[in-house]
Design a protein around this nucleic acid. Structure first.
Length: 799
RNA sequence: GCGGGUAUGGCGGAAUUGGCAGACGUGUUGGAUUUAGGUUCCAAUGCCGCAUGGCGUGCAGGUUCAAAUCCUGUUACCCGCACCA
């Protein structure tokens, strides 16, 4: 009988669905296990060939855990709000809700065809009012706790999407989504105070099991630095405060630079004689996009303030003040002390403007290049710091500044507050009313969800207002506080909102009283294994950890950290090694692959394609090998001999069980499959019995669940394979009686000898010397050294 | 510029407490089956050489009985972040 994937796959998918084989009940005696994949954005293109890679990987883990006796939660849902859907809706004049509904239906059908063991009873969608009710609820709690605030600020404005972007969404001065140019714009925006959690987000990384590159990406993004804030007295009679990580170089500060947006410019207006030039520079800086700033690379520009200067607090010397756009208003204090001898940017600026460069750390040639090495070098030209190492000088100067009241130690973070508003329709409405009398008034919790109104047009407005602003009968409300006329907030939440807490909703998805019951939250606890793309290491991961920490603080969740373990998969590239895209014409459709080879082959190949963590090019040739392997497993059934215990293959059986079991835990899916292939090759050579074949079927089940269920049934089993116990191995049974030892002469392989496992060193050596090839290789030479590594190798050194 | 990663046959990739380099798959070649193609099966397959043998893990050194693996230097490519003081 020939292996035909299609009827087998339909049969078992139907059976799993009918018996609710993968439904997870909250509670019970079994230990719990929560495996999570990043829920997909249901785009119009349908499932991408990249989706099944991480899904299959965690499906393997989930299926193995069930066989190991765990109560497994492996849920699926839809990250349904977002811009592409809205843009498609505009283009086709279809309601985004309809577009989303259709896309989800399409994704569901495709996803189900691959045979993942998701609990479909827990399916969620972030665009469902029953879901976003709780997204809004969390926002209200943040508002009440002072973590949500509205502020007029410079924002990243995508000129193409007509939308404000978070810093995280700007890539090289361009919109992450559409590639349009991003410029700066003043706008009043809702913000979330993630910076308040900067240190906790950093410290928490020490308590979780994330792959190192994810931790690194998060640490770099948070960007903690230690230094000091120092006050410089000015000729205006006030003090200009700077932040520096190198207080040790204070004696070398020969000028100061303020950001063009620094408020002191307004304050000093009357004293400044060159306000025209200053204003012109400010206007120029404001107009510049991030992209233009990056393009200019390191060509420094600036204007000197005429009329106000500062005094170096340790030398007492008068030093000039400049404004320049290389100093950013939103980091530190918006002003710096410039030490050209020991900072590359300051050095470039000083060279261009002819400013003095004073060496304070010996070891470099500061007239030719800034010397920034802090590990070597001693302090010079620095008064009481002279002769000290940099590290000691830092401590000494910081203590001195504190004592004199001119500075103090300070920690800074690159992390910025989260711009939590989009001028778009297809997102969660922000549940706030703006009242002329009472200011911001949050909706009461009973009024949630605040539903999106039905509208005719979703076009963004040219002035940057949300399309919701045009829906007057929705916007105009009475103030919940004073009863007077008021308006709703018309901005919506960014689409990171819904995904920041979805792992909690899965625990109790149909609860209409709470975001999830305390019992469910307590039972499922942390996500045990969360896998997702590297591109989310700094965005989604930080946002959702932040929300979870907040929910922990207000007593909703028991754990500070939501994810116990985080791993990341590599992208699947086109056959030509380039990223898959329509324009490159190298797109592989997973549904076509399933039609040709079956879902089990697709799953197997995506796991076999290479190291799970690395990118891998698709190969139409190589996938055939996986289908061939399944054909061979299928055909082998007819040759199975009777036998309830492992027979001739007993050593290899235990070795393979160990290898597959461990490889799954270490995400080495490719070598797990290779081991099973080698086992099947061995079966074809030596034959196999029922016990051996049954174990192969079990080991292969998480990878290729349909064919293995069918074979399991053919073997006469009544129960589904899904809950069969995972095979166990015994190290003792892996030991063979004899070992084959390689024999080297002078480090070169000259032969092998087969010896009893526990042979003595002397006997092993004697056997090696008795070998014809070995004796020929050492003939007429003096043996200098004999090395015998038991069980590994023999090496004879001759001269 | 800073941070991280990678480099192994024609191709994807194995092998890391230093111990037979190239598992597994693909591709290729030859053979069997077949009217033929496809499928399946058998054999070979790192490179040079008829062969004994020699050479081989980006490159150049080093440590060691023994190095893809450790050390020093260097090159190329990929991915983050990017004027963060």
């Amino acid at each position: 009988m020939k292996y035909e994937s299609q009827p087998i796959e339909s049969k078992w998918q139907k059976k799993w669905e009918e018996t609710k084989a993968f439904h997870a009940e909250t509670g019970g005696d079994k230990p719990k296990y929560y495996a999570l994949i990043e829920f997909p954005y249901p785009s119009g293109q349908g499932l991408h060939i990249g989706h099944p890679r991480p899904y299959t990987a965690l499906d393997i883990v989930a299926r193995k855990r069930r066989m190991q006796g765990y109560n497994v939660l492996f849920p699926i849902g839809w990250d349904a709000f977002g811009l592409p859907t809205e843009n498609y809706a505009i283009k086709t004049h279809t309601h985004p809700a309809k577009v989303t509904h259709d896309n989800i239906a399409h994704f569901t059908e495709q996803t189900k065809a691959i045979g993942f063991s998701f609990d479909w009873d827990r399916e969620i969608s972030t665009a469902d009012p029953e879901y976003y009710k709780w997204t809004q609820w969390i926002f209200l709690q943040m508002y009440k706790n002072g973590l949500a605030y509205k502020q007029n600020m410079t924002v990243n404005w995508c000129t193409s999407c007509k939308i404000v972007l978070a810093n995280e969404e700007v890539v090289e001065g361009h919109c992450e989504r559409c590639g349009g140019e991003v410029i700066h714009k003043e706008k009043s925006q809702w913000m979330l105070r993630i910076t308040k959690y900067a240190q906790r987000l950093l410290d928490g990384l020490d308590t979780v099991d994330y792959i190192e590159r994810v931790k690194l990406a998060e640490r770099n993004w948070i960007g903690r630095s230690e230094g000091a804030e120092v006050d410089f007295e000015t000729t205006a009679g006030d003090k200009l405060r700077v932040y520096t990580t190198r207080p040790d170089t204070l004696f070398g500060a020969t000028y100061m630079v303020m950001s063009p947006e620094h408020p002191y410019i307004k304050k000093w207006e009357d004293r400044l004689s060159n306000m025209d030039a200053i204003r012109a520079y400010q206007a120029e800086a404001a107009r510049k996009s991030d992209f233009e700033r990056a393009e200019l690379d390191h060509d420094k520009t600036g204007v000197r303030l005429e009329g106000v200067a500062a005094f170096n607090p340790v030398t007492g010397r008068e030093i000039p003040i400049y404004i320049s756009d290389y100093v950013l208003m939103n980091y530190g204090t918006g002003a710096i002390m410039a030490v050209p001898a020991h900072d590359t940017r300051d050095w470039e600026f000083a060279k261009k403007f002819g400013l003095p460069i004073i060496e304070v750390v010996a070891g470099g040639d500061v007239q030719n290049e800034a010397f920034t090495d802090v590990a070597t070098g001693k302090m010079v030209n620095s008064g009481f710091l002279d002769g000290m190492e940099v590290a000691d000088a830092k401590k000494a100067i910081t203590a001195y500044l504190k004592e004199k009241g001119i500075g103090e130690p300070k920690v800074n973070y690159k992390l910025r507050d989260w711009v939590f508003a989009r001028q778009r329709y297809w997102g969660e409405p922000i549940p706030i009313v703006i009242c002329p009398k009472c200011g911001f008034v949050p909706l009461s919790e009973e009024d949630l969800p605040l539903r999106l109104p039905d509208v005719e047009s979703y076009e963004p407005t040219d002035n940057g207002e949300s399309p919701l602003a045009k829906v007057r009968d929705w916007v105009e409300v009475t103030c919940p506080h004073c009863g007077g006329p008021a308006e709703r907030e018309t901005d919506t939440m960014p689409n990171w909102a819904g995904s920041s807490w979805y792992f909690l909703r899965y625990m109790d998805p149909h609860n209409d009283k709470e975001l999830a019951s305390p019992e469910a939250i307590k039972y499922w606890g942390q996500v045990d294994w969360y896998n997702g793309g590297m591109e989310h290491a700094t965005l989604h991961m930080l946002y959702s950890r932040f929300w979870n920490m907040f929910l922990h603080d207000i007593g909703v969740v028991p754990n500070d950290e939501p994810y116990a373990k985080r791993t990341s998969h590599g992208m699947i590239l086109g056959e030509n090694g380039e990223k898959m895209s329509k324009s490159r014409g190298n797109v592989i459709d997973p549904m076509v692959v399933i039609g040709e080879y079956g879902a089990d082959t697709l799953r197997l190949y995506e796991m076999f394609i290479g190291d799970f963590e690395k990118t891998a090019p698709w190969s139409t040739a190589a996938i055939k090998g996986c289908r061939r392997f399944l054909d061979r497993v299928w055909t082998l059934y007819d040759q199975v001999q009777p036998g309830d215990e492992y027979g001739a293959n007993v050593h290899l059986m235990h070795e393979t069980i160990k290898k597959v079991s461990e490889d799954i835990e270490n995400m080495k899916f490719n070598t797990a499959i290779a081991a099973m292939m080698a086992l099947v090759n061995d079966f074809y050579e030596k034959g196999c019995n029922r016990a051996e074949y049954g174990t192969l079927v079990k080991l292969l089940n998480p990878f290729a669940p349909h064919i293995t269920e069918e074979l399991w049934e053919m073997l006469g089993n009544k129960e589904m394979l899904v809950f069969e116990p995972w095979p166990e191995y015994d190290e003792a049974k892996m030991v063979r009686d004899t070992v084959e030892l390689p024999v080297q002469v002078n480090g070169r392989l000259r032969g092998t000898v087969t010896l009893p496992r526990d042979v003595s060193r002397e006997d092993a050596l004697a056997a090696a010397l008795a070998d014809d090839r070995i004796s020929a290789a050492i003939a007429g030479k003096e043996i200098v050294k004999k090395i015998v590594v038991p069980g590994k190798i023999i090496n004879i050194v001759v001269k």
